[in-house]
Amino acid sequence: MKYTTEIVVDVHRDEFIKKMDDPDNMKHWQQGLIGYEQLSASPGQEGSRMSLSYEMGSRKMDMVETIIKKELPNELHMTYDTKGVHNIQKNYFKEEGASTRWVSESEFQFSGFGMKLMGFLMPGAFKKQSLKYMQDFKAFAENGTSVLNS
């Protein structure tokens, strides 16, 4: 399953990247994030890995993020792996005057019958979640609004 989402964030790209590239900021725009742990000696670099833990309702989910391409301020590509799901995320950041256009290409590869069925029956839920994270990042970057306060 593949889809693209995009949003314009009304902050200059330099500020956008500074906020995006700081893992301590993730808790302010990724609802459900309960913690992260760097798994690599050189965090934030190509090839580095980070463990992420989320709580969504009564469901807990752990995944591993791997940075596969980092050419900031223009693009940042990662993979996310959790049980039954491999997600490839390609993010592009385009300067538009004092704003930044964030284009995110998502590809989900499912293994196991349950995850394949969920991907087939509920593709909109994945896109909706991606867009929610983008909207929450926009609110955080523009106004300092944190999901921790909601």
Rank of each mutant, 00 (worst) to 15 (best):
M1Q: 01
M1I: 05
T4V: 15
T4W: 06
I7M: 15
V8R: 14
V8S: 15
V9L: 13
V9P: 05
D10K: 09
D10P: 05
V11Q: 13
V11A: 15
H12W: 00
H12E: 15
R13D: 06
D14V: 08
D14T: 08
E15Y: 00
E15V: 04
F16W: 03
K18Q: 14
K18F: 08
K19S: 10
M20K: 00
D21Q: 06
P23Q: 02
D24T: 03
N25S: 09
N25G: 06
N25W: 01
M26P: 00
K27I: 15
K27G: 14
H28S: 14
W29H: 02
G32N: 00
G35M: 06
Y36K: 05
Y36T: 03
Q38S: 10
Q38T: 04
L39Q: 02
S40M: 12
A41I: 04
P43G: 07
P43R: 00
G44K: 01
Q45D: 12
Q45Y: 02
E46N: 05
E46L: 08
R49Q: 14
M50L: 07
S51F: 08
S53A: 13
E55F: 07
M56C: 07
K60T: 02
M61G: 07
M63W: 01
M63P: 05
E65C: 12
E65P: 04
I67H: 12
I67E: 05
I68V: 15
I68W: 09
K69S: 14
K69G: 08
K70V: 06
K70D: 04
E71Y: 00
E71F: 08
L72T: 00
P73V: 08
N74L: 13
H77D: 11
M78V: 10
T79D: 15
K83Q: 11
K83E: 13
K83F: 06
N87D: 03
I88H: 13
I88G: 14
I88D: 11
Q89R: 06
K90N: 05
N91Q: 08
N91R: 03
F93M: 10
G97R: 04
G97A: 10
T100F: 06
W102F: 09
W102P: 01
S104A: 15
F108E: 08
Q109R: 05
F110K: 01
G112I: 10
G114P: 01
M115W: 02
M115H: 01
M118A: 15
G119K: 00
G119L: 04
F120C: 15
M122E: 04
M122S: 10
M122C: 14
P123A: 12
P123Y: 00
K127S: 06
S130L: 15
Y133G: 12
M134G: 08
M134V: 00
M134H: 04
Q135R: 06
D136W: 03
F137C: 07
F137M: 09
A139D: 06
A139C: 12
F140M: 10
E142Y: 01
N143F: 11
N143M: 13
T145E: 13
V147D: 14
L148T: 06
L148K: 07
N149H: 07
S150T: 07
